[in-house]
Design a binder for these strands. Structure first.
Lengths: 225, 225
DNA sequence: ACAATTACATAACAAATATCATATTTAAAA
DNA sequence: TTTTAAATATGATATTTGTTATGTAATTGT
C-alpha cells in the first residue's frame, strides 16, 4: 500500500467502508504536488474542487481574523487531509492552508470521492463519523480558548504536539514551528508566547536547540494553570 | 405538517432526502417531554440514544471547563436538534444541555434515524453537509474567541441573537438570558459582561427593560472592536 | 405580603496580557 | 563570507480582564 492510500485510510477509516478497487482508484494520485516552506496551498474564500493529502511535511490550517491576525485552527501532517469539508459543501473554504516546511502532497478531485459518497452508504457514514469527531474537537478547543489562560494553552499545545506528532531521535518535538506560529495557535501576541516559552525554559520544563523544543517535564506542563 | 416534522426538516433539509413516509415515521414523536427553566436535559459524559427536538423554548449547549466555569457553545431554539452527533458516534456527549426557559421537546430514538442513515445515502449526505456547516461555524467561533476582545464578542453576540432569533413585538431580543449566560457565551467573568452591557447602555447602543434587551444602534455595535 | 434568595450593578484593586521599544541571536541572501 | 533580514529575547508600560467586596433591585417561595 502506497503512502497515498494510507492517508485516505487514516482519515476515513475506509478499509472497512471502501472496497479495494474503490480505494485503489481514489488513491491513484495522478496529481502530486510539491510546496515549499511558507507557500500557500489554498486561501480562505477559494472554492476547492478536491482534497489535498499530505504525503510529507507539515502545514497549518488557519483563518485571518478581522484584526489582521492569523489564527491557526489545526496542524496537519503526513496522512492528513486538507479541504475535507469542500467535498460535501460547495461553499468557499473558511480556512487557508500554508506549508510550515517543504511538503509533498497529492490532490484528489472532488468528483472521484463524490461518486463513492453517493454509491456507498457505509463510506458516507464513515465520513460522517469523522466529521462528527472533528466537530467535537473544535468545540473542545473553543472552550479551552475561552476559559484557559495563555500559559496553560501554550503548555497544552506543547503536550498536544508531543502526543500527536512525537519526537525526533534526540527527543525534540518532531514538528518545528516558529514562536509566531505558537502565538497564533493559542491566540496571543508573539511576545507573550516567547515570554512564556522562555519562562518554561527557565523553570526547566522544556529545553531548546535553535527552534527545536524538547519537553523535559511533561508532568509539570500538565499541572500548569 | 406538525412542528416536530418541521424540526427535522430544518436541521436536515430532509424534504428532498427523505420520503414522506420516512419523515412521518421519524416525526411520530411518541415521547414528548417538558423541561422547566434551569432543568438539565442531558449532561456531559452521558451516552445519548437519540436526538431531542426543540418544539418550544430555548436551551444552551455548554461544556464545563476545568476551572469549573461553564462555556456555552450554542443556543438552540424551536426547530433545532440536540445530540445530533450521538446519532453517528457512540461516544459520550461532550456537551451538557440546560433549559434557559420552560421548554417543550420531543425525543427521537437513535434507532429510528440510523435505519434511514444506512438505507438512504441522500439523507446521509444531507446530514453530512449539515455537520460540515456546524464544523465551519465552530471553527469561525474559535477564531473569534481567540482573537477578539471581550467587548467585541459581546457586541457580536447581541447582533447574532438579533439576526438569528429576532425580536418580540416591542423590539426586544426574543431570547432573554441572564448576564451570567452572556458571560459564559463569550467566555468572560459575569461582572465583566455586566460592566460592558452597562457601558453599551450608557452609550445608547442598547436599552433594557428588566432582563430584556433592545438593540438601538446595531451599526454602533458592529463597529466596536 | 413578606422574607429569602438570586440577579444585577458598581467600584477598587490585582492579575494577565498587549503594546512599544530595543537588543541579541539566528537564519537567509548576496 | 559578509551582509541583511528575520526571529528570538527582554524590559517598561499601557490596557484589558478578573477578583473581591458591597449594595441595590428583582424574583421566588412561603
Amino acid at each position: 500500500m502506497n503512502r497515498c492510500e494510507s492517508c485516505i485510510v487514516k482519515e476515513f477509516n475506509s478499509l472497512k467502508a471502501l472496497t479495494r478497487d474503490e480505494l485503489m482508484r481514489i488513491s491513484s494520485c495522478k496529481t502530486g504536488k510539491l510546496f515549499k516552506k511558507g507557500e500557500i496551498i489554498f486561501e480562505e474564500g477559494e472554492i476547492l474542487n478536491g482534497v489535498f493529502c499530505v504525503k510529507d511535511g507539515v502545514c497549518k490550517l488557519s483563518k485571518l481574523s478581522e484584526n489582521g491576525k492569523d489564527q491557526v485552527v489545526k496542524l496537519v501532517v503526513k496522512g492528513g487531509l486538507l479541504g475535507k469539508r469542500s467535498i460535501v459543501s460547495d461553499e468557499t473554504t473558511n480556512l487557508s492552508a500554508v506549508a510550515l516546511n517543504d511538503m509533498e502532497m497529492c490532490f484528489i478531485p472532488k468528483s472521484e470521492i463524490m461518486a463513492d459518497l453517493k454509491k456507498n452508504p457505509n463510506f458516507t457514514l464513515d465520513v460522517l463519523q469523522k466529521m462528527a469527531g472533528d466537530l467535537r474537537d473544535s468545540e473542545d478547543t473553543l472552550v479551552d480558548m475561552a476559559q484557559k489562560p495563555v500559559k496553560q494553552r501554550i503548555a497544552e499545545t506543547l503536550l498536544y504536539i508531543l502526543d500527536n506528532f512525537g519526537t525526533d531521535e534526540d527527543g525534540y518535538l518532531s514538528i518545528v514551528i516558529s514562536r509566531e506560529d505558537y502565538a497564533s495557535i493559542v491566540g496571543t501576541a508573539t511576545e507573550s508566547a516567547i515570554r512564556i516559552l522562555s519562562h518554561f525554559k527557565k523553570e526547566g520544563f522544556i529545553s531548546t536547540s535553535g527552534k527545536k523544543i524538547k519537553i523535559e517535564e511533561p508532568k509539570a506542563l500538565k499541572w500548569i494553570q
